[in-house]
Structure formats: C-alpha cells, structure tokens
C-alpha cells in the first residue's frame, strides 16, 4: 500500500514539477509567442468546446485507432509469416534492415502523393510508420522461441495452429508488446503530422490553423491537449501491458 502510494507519487512527481516550473516561469510573460500558462489554461476551456471535440479530436483519435489497429494486425500477421518461413525471412531480411533505418515521417510526402488527402491517406501515413516496429519485433520474437519449447510442442503433436497460438505467439509476446509500444508513439506523431499537411479536420489541423491565425494561446492549448492525449494513451498501454504480460514481469521480478 505504502509502496503503491510511493510509486504513484514518483510517477506524477516529475510532470507536476515541470508543470509548476512552466507555470512560474511563464507567469509574468508578456511575450506574444509564450503566453502565461494560466492564460493557456483559461483558453483551453474556451477553445476545446464540445463541437471541437466532435470535429477535431474524435476524428484524430479515430484515424489513430484505425491506423494503429491495422498496423498491429498487419505487423503481427506478416511478422509471424516471415519469422516462421525460412526462405521468406532470407528474402526479406535486407529490406527489413533498411526499413528499420528509415525515420517514419520521411514517407509522409510520398504517401500523400499516392493516397490523396482523405482519411485513407492519414491512416496510410500512420500505418506506414507504425507497422515497422511491430513487424520487426514480431519477426525477432517469433524467431527466438526456445527450441526446447518447439520440440515439446512437436513431440506432443500439438499441430500448427495450437503451436502458433499457445507456444509461438505467447513466447514472442514480450517482443511484440515492445514493438506495439514504439508503434503507438510513432502513430501519435504521424497522426499530427499527416493532419498538418492537408486536412479539413483533426488535432494537427486545428493547431496549425490557430498558429496561422495567430491565436497563440489556443495553439498552446492544442499542444497541451496533444500531450495529455499521449500521456493517456501511454497509461492505457501500460494497463494492457500488465494484463497481457503479467507472467513475464512477475517472472523477471522473481528471478531478479
């Protein structure tokens, strides 16, 4: 109990300090571009009305959700296929190595060229960046299953499907979840960037609009909202991580 409280305090400690520092440092600010935090927060309620949530925040989150879900499905499915098929792995290894090295946003203009500027484009942009960490980690995880475990599955004749679902995927799950965590961060970034280029709605679109119309406190409030969204998603992901990998974390704690 005491431990849990201490953990919670540690978790919110640094953000709270930074927030306080921002508040104090900006308190007397008269700069047009760096308004006081108090002004930004006052603006927050004004700007993010129910209408804006419906027209900008929800579409953003929906695109992110769709892009992220697609990335997970495609990344895991392809990763299992490549990781379990020797010739396919040999064939794709150089490409995967290359893809790992390319920073995700460089693809944005290229994909816009092909996919147009609709929702599909934005989802495609998100997938184009998010799928890689999931794919690469799944391949690595699937390939590093303990040989004795595969022998056990084979000796008891578990069959392909059961071996995949009960042995290979759980064994690779710590790596897959690592990939999904990286993918989520990349997905949020790409969501905003794709909306900044060409869009009629979305968080990124709204922030750029505020900036262009010199509504600086509103712009800052948008950035603040983005930060909160990122933090909320990260917290949600931690819950997911602990639910799926509790055996893994427990085991590691036990062995340490």
């Amino acid at each position: 109990m005491v431990n849990a409280i201490r953990k919670a305090l540690l978790a919110i400690g640094l953000p709270a300090v930074l927030f306080a520092a921002w508040w104090l440092a900006s308190a007397g600010s008269t700069s047009f571009y760096f308004p006081p935090l108090s002004a930004i927060i006052a603006e927050f309620g004004e700007t993010w009305t129910a209408e804006r949530w419906r027209d900008d925040v929800l579409p953003s989150v929906a695109r992110l959700g769709a892009g992220y879900a697609l990335s997970c499905i495609a990344g895991i499915a392809l990763g299992v296929l490549i990781g379990r098929t020797r010739w396919l792995f040999r064939l794709t290894e150089p490409v995967l190595e290359f893809a790992r090295a390319v920073p995700p946003p460089v693809l944005v203009p290229v994909i816009m060229l092909f996919a147009g500027i609709g929702d599909g484009m934005k989802v495609a942009v998100i997938v184009s960046g998010s799928v890689w960490p999931i794919l690469l980690n799944t391949v690595a995880g699937v390939r590093s299953v303990e040989p004795v475990q595969l022998d056990t599955a084979a000796a008891y004749r578990l069959g392909r499907t059961r071996t995949l679902l009960e042995v290979v995927l759980p064994s690779a799950s710590p790596r897959i979840v690592t990939g999904m965590r990286q993918a989520l961060a990349i997905g949020v970034i790409l969501m905003v960037i794709s909306e900044m280029f060409a869009a009629q709605s979305g968080l990124g679109f709204a922030i750029v609009q505020f900036q262009r119309s010199y509504a600086i406190p509103a712009m800052w409030s948008g950035i603040l909202l983005l930060g909160c969204l990122g933090a909320a998603l990260a917290a949600l992901f931690n819950v997911f991580d602990r639910a799926v990998l509790h055996w893994y974390h427990h085991q590691r704690a036990e062995e340490a």
Partner: peptide, 30 residues
C-alpha cells in the same frame, strides 16, 4: 515425425515448461 502416443521429458526441464501458463495449463496442453 513425432509418433502418436509418445511423450518426451527433456534435460532442460525449466525451459521445456511454458512460463506463460500455470502448472495446470502446462500439464493440460497436450
């Protein structure tokens, strides 16, 4: 291929059990 009705106990016992399953599930899987 692995013949039906054959069970194998490996030397590396720790690694032949599945850490994501409880003892009961490990025994039940086959």
């Amino acid at each position: 291929g692995p013949p039906e009705g054959t069970a194998v106990v490996f030397q590396e016992y720790g690694r032949s059990l599945f850490p994501w399953m409880r003892v009961g599930a490990n025994v039940e899987l086959p």
